[in-house]
Amino acid sequence: MTGAGMDQELLTIDALTVREGSRDLVAEASFSLARGECVGLIGPNGAGKTTLMRAALGLQRAQGLSSLTLLPPEERARQVAFLPQNRDVAWPVSVRDLVSLGLLPARGIGLHVPQTVAERVEAILAEMELTALADRAATSLSGGELARVMMARLLVQDTPLVIADEPAASLDPAQQIALMDRLRSVADAGRGVLVSLHDLGLAARYCTRLLAMKAGRIVADGAPMDVLTPEVLADVFQIRAQMIDTSDGLILHPVALTGRGG
């Protein structure tokens, strides 16, 4: 790992604003993310989660500050790895080749693949149970398999910070749990994770901290218990939920709609 050094803050965002026409897709977003944190970004569709992530990464024009956009592209690629929602693979390259793309920032120019790099890819493939699929064309995989391949590509980049946009979408329950366990262990190992989630149950159970977004604004920021209050759930999601603190962690299940705008 390189880049952050002794610095505990992996990402600092200050008054980040993305304007489209007269509408603010993201308005004055400010937060920071430290080592060891697994931060869940929650909010209804269109709240600005994806836009906030892309602006934080410098993929989208924005006003305000994101510490990542200050870095030159090569340096940023060693600081943060990004998994977008779009899982479109352009060419029928093998799973192994696709995962190896995560090593582009670390390896030198040229077609030669250094030994250590190949080993790291094999280790991740084994860890993600992808070894049997390694020679398959990535375009021939099922949705769940492809999601695992994308995750492997993200992890092999081995950056201090990981940003993932809806990685749990279209996964079955077992794979969702495996995915969240993995993201959480990345954070527990002293790296940082920013992940957008639609499933509030997963967010409540696995994240160390949640950011709730509504209409481009971050309206709540804190521990899952403090963010997922009846008031915030009603205001942001227009739902009512049951929440139980169990030995397996926080269990949250949406049960009813509340009145719109109430």
Binding site: R54, F82, N86, D88, L104, Q157
Partner: peptide, 16 residues
């Protein structure tokens, strides 16, 4: 090669 996964991923892999 990086563009195999789209422009966003390519950019975050260090492609200018």
């Amino acid at each position: 090669s990086a563009l195999t996964l789209g422009e966003d991923v390519a950019a975050t892999l260090g492609v200018n």
